[in-house]
């Protein structure tokens, strides 16, 4: 049996060595960051993640109690309100994060995949929000479903993605889209840790593959 750092160990050992090489503990959970990160614009990524956690927790409570709970219970209405407003904040913070990263060209320095996973997260979130509108079980959701049905039928996908089918939309909203969004968000954050925070355009170039965040802070 080989040690942690040695060769061998089959595919599990190979995966472990590769993961530890790409994301050593001091890079995965750094205690210092580059000096250029001392700006409020760098705060919006973590604010987005914090809002997403509240969205997932309150959505989990709503899923436990059922989709009609918030219509018949004050506590249900309160949790539904938390879910709504955490989504509002999630979108608010995510858009500012997107603007900030766009104007600092955050795909520089081999960070294209970080940018792409963030963009796909954004579009997945829009899908999750729209299916959320559809499962409110009120006149608002009926109206939205009626309008969306015409739009989706006009592009030929109404038979596969039927917005009038409450069960299908509920499953998309509480299973498929949160799963995809959660995995993408984790991938996005790991990529940020791997490649490092993007420096300002006029800052000295730091090769993220060679520099840990601790070294970059010096």
């Amino acid at each position: 049996m080989s040690g942690m750092g040695g060769a061998g160990g089959g595919w599990t050992g190979a995966v472990r060595r590769r993961v530890v090489r790409a994301l050593p503990p001091e890079k995965l959970l750094p205690d210092t960051q580059p000096a250029y990160m001392a700006s409020w614009i760098y705060v919006f990524g973590v604010l987005t993640v914090a809002a997403l956690i509240v969205v997932l927790l309150t959505g989990g409570v709503l899923a436990l109690k059922g989709p009609a709970w918030w219509h018949v219970s004050g506590a249900g209405k309160y949790v539904n309100g938390l879910h709504l407003w955490s989504v509002e904040l999630f979108m608010f913070f995510m858009v500012i994060h997107l603007w900030g990263k766009f104007f600092m060209a955050a795909w520089r320095g081999r960070r294209a995949l970080t940018w792409v996973t963030g963009a796909v997260c954004f579009f997945t979130s829009i899908g999750a929000a729209f299916t959320g509108y559809l499962v409110q079980q009120n006149f608002d959701s009926q109206w939205i479903a009626g309008q969306a049905k015409d739009g989706l039928n006009s592009v030929g996908i109404g038979a596969f993605f039927n917005v009038l089918d409450f069960g299908q939309m509920l499953m998309w909203h509480i299973v498929l889209l949160p799963l995809v969004l959660g995995l993408l968000a984790i991938w996005h954050i790991l990529l940020v840790r791997w490649r490092g925070i993007v420096p300002p355009i006029d800052a000295a170039t730091i090769d993220p593959a060679d520099a840990t965040t601790r070294e970059a802070a010096r």
Binding site: V43, F92, I96, W99, G100
Partner: peptide, 11 residues
């Protein structure tokens, strides 16, 4: 409008 204000404030 609020997002633009917060964005500018962050900068």
């Amino acid at each position: 409008g609020l997002m633009l204000v917060v964005f500018m404030a962050a900068l």
